[in-house]
């Protein structure tokens, strides 16, 4: 089952805090931008959808839920399990913040 975890975000300078259901996870949009470089080798940075689904402009909750579903192996794609499997909570929150800030499609 996929459930939303992030409830709110506050900004302190460059970093943001994502209040998850039970814990507080820090996200850092600049770190997210750096980490996202790994994602856009495959996922279109402009949000195009061709063979690989776009990830730009996603809702933060959805992004975190989907990544966690790959981490828990609820979702199947082995490449995504591999990439998601090595992300910690701060990295996931940072990526969620960054991709949420990107336009959905060109």
């Amino acid at each position: 089952m996929i459930k939303a975890t992030a409830l709110a975000i506050l900004i302190t300078g460059l970093s943001a805090v994502v209040f998850a259901k039970d814990t507080i996870i820090k996200g850092d949009i600049e770190y997210g931008k750096h980490l996202a470089a790994e994602c856009v080798t495959c996922h279109s940075a402009l949000g195009k959808n061709k063979g690989i689904p776009p990830v730009t402009g996603w809702n933060i909750d959805t992004f975190i839920s989907v990544i966690n579903a790959y981490r828990s192996k609820e979702l199947k794609n082995p490449a995504m399990r591999l990439i998601a499997g090595r992300l910690d909570e701060e990295q996931i929150a940072s990526l969620a913040l960054y991709f949420a800030s990107q336009p959905k499609s060109e």
Partner: peptide
């Protein structure tokens, strides 16, 4: 609502700082 507002604000502020 407050959550959407902070999300959007956060993105804008941070993107501005990144530039």
């Amino acid at each position: 609502n407050r959550r959407q507002f902070t999300t959007i604000l956060g993105s804008t502020v941070a993107a501005g700082a990144l530039a």
